[in-house]
Design a protein around this nucleic acid. Structure first.
Lengths: 253, 253
DNA sequence: AAGTGGTCTAGACCACCCC
DNA sequence: GGGTGGTCTAGACCACTTA
């Protein structure tokens, strides 16, 4: 498999992709091309190993990754089967972000900044972030719009010390995500609660709603790979203008 | 490791647990007992292999599973680290179910059945389930209560043919989940949308709200391991009485 | 340069499914 | 009993980090 140039044109990183990822791509390709049909059975593992020129351990790593992606499912003693209705493309296994939603709908996302300043953390905030009350906390509050229509009010709070110089960043032109990423902050998980409330005067004003209209409130704590709280955010969506999309999985115990 | 009786008392299935699961339990145990502290580094893989008496491949399968659980994180060239604030126990990576929420709060869940009958599928339903319009669809509509207080209105629809005899099941005493499970129906994923709307007269009546009060609406399509649609359900939660809890993960590409 | 994780192999044995 | 997935091993080489 290493010796077959052109198996997959993408070798950008300068180093070849791991064999098991190449195998994933080959198998995905066979499914996309219709060689393997939904509901159909794959060749036996030992046969696939021979075809791909890789060991069984490596092949199984690839197959495992495809299970996680919902593309294949194994049946002990019978074989590997292609999931049905793979046509349903992909729905994010995680939450679809605001920008992703915008892209999916072919709309242009914008933000207006209401607030971008550092103030002391309240007791509640300190508890959520695992820091001392009074610690300097940077607050970024934005209205997010699609095609000029206000969709959501987003209040994000993070320790000022996490991103030195954050209070001089111009968030009218720079995205929060790219700013965090540049500082080496990469959330891997977000513990979230979601509820429906009535819009108060302030929220209604910013979202162009009437007071009392339904608002979808999502509160998140973003965590690092070390399970360290990175930031908390509260996002209020205009009830009739937005719909969260996600997919939950029953853990395979 | 096989030869050390008493490593873990649980060998119920008659067959021993796989070595890698035993290794997972040992490592979890060390962390719970405080031998390995949050933020601390594990011994090198080759050293752990020696201690546990297993091969490196097997150890890495165990470590991989602990990464997925958010307990450990690897750092290439440096070592394996215990995630910080492991104290936060576990929050389901999937959505917390109504019964789970009830259990967490120490409350007793109940249901009243509004409707349980088979009728032809509408075009929308047929499309969601990948079946022909007019196919016989079993509809189960229930009010879900905690301590006698109505919390949600749950309408679930599934192909009558999936569970033969479903229209003679008494859902006042039998749970939907156990009925499906007994029929070999095991959803592994649920594609969901969540929005906030105003309660209409009917919903308000069943949930003991005023018309116009905010309602959290979740629509789900449950899928099998083969990605086959199993059932669709629409759950309307009283906005001020319920809060969805979940945790989203940025996939580790 | 030494230590550590990341990838890969060839071969073995066991448990499950179906004939 | 034959085929298939599930688990496990010992050993090798590569890439990243740290000094």
């Amino acid at each position: 498999m290493n010796d077959s140039p052109g198996v997959s044109g993408t070798v950008l990183p300068g180093y070849p992709e791991p064999l098991w990822i190449q195998a994933v791509n080959v198998i995905r390709g066979e499914i996309d091309r219709g060689v393997l049909r939904p509901g159909g059975r794959l060749p036996p593992e030992r046969e696939l190993c021979r075809q791909l020129g890789i060991s069984r351990v490596t092949l199984r790593k690839a197959l495992g990754s495809l299970v996680e992606a919902g593309v294949l499912s194994p049946s002990h003693g019978r074989g590997w089967y292609v999931a049905k209705s793979t046509q349903k493309k992909e729905w994010p296994n995680s939450l679809e972000s605001f920008s992703e939603t915008a892209a999916r709908m072919g709309l242009e996302p914008h933000s207006t900044v209401l607030r971008a300043e550092a103030t002391p953390a309240t007791i509640d905030e300190a508890e959520q972030l695992g820091i001392a009350p009074g610690t300097s906390l940077f607050r970024l509050e934005r209205v997010r719009l699609l095609e000029g229509v206000p969709i959501a009010l987003d209040l994000t709070r993070l320790r000022s010390a996490l991103v030195p110089g954050i209070d001089s960043v111009d968030f009218r032109v720079r995205s929060l995500y790219s700013t965090l990423s540049a500082a080496g902050i990469e959330p891997v998980r977000a513990d979230s609660t979601i509820e429906a409330t009535k819009a108060d005067e302030r929220v209604a004003g910013h979202l162009d709603l009437a007071a009392g209209d339904p608002v979808l409130v999502m509160r998140q704590v973003a965590l690092s790979a070390q399970q360290e709280p990175l930031f908390v955010s509260t996002i209020r969506y205009a009830g009739d203008r937005y719909r969260l999309r996600t997919s939950f999985s029953r853990s395979h115990d």
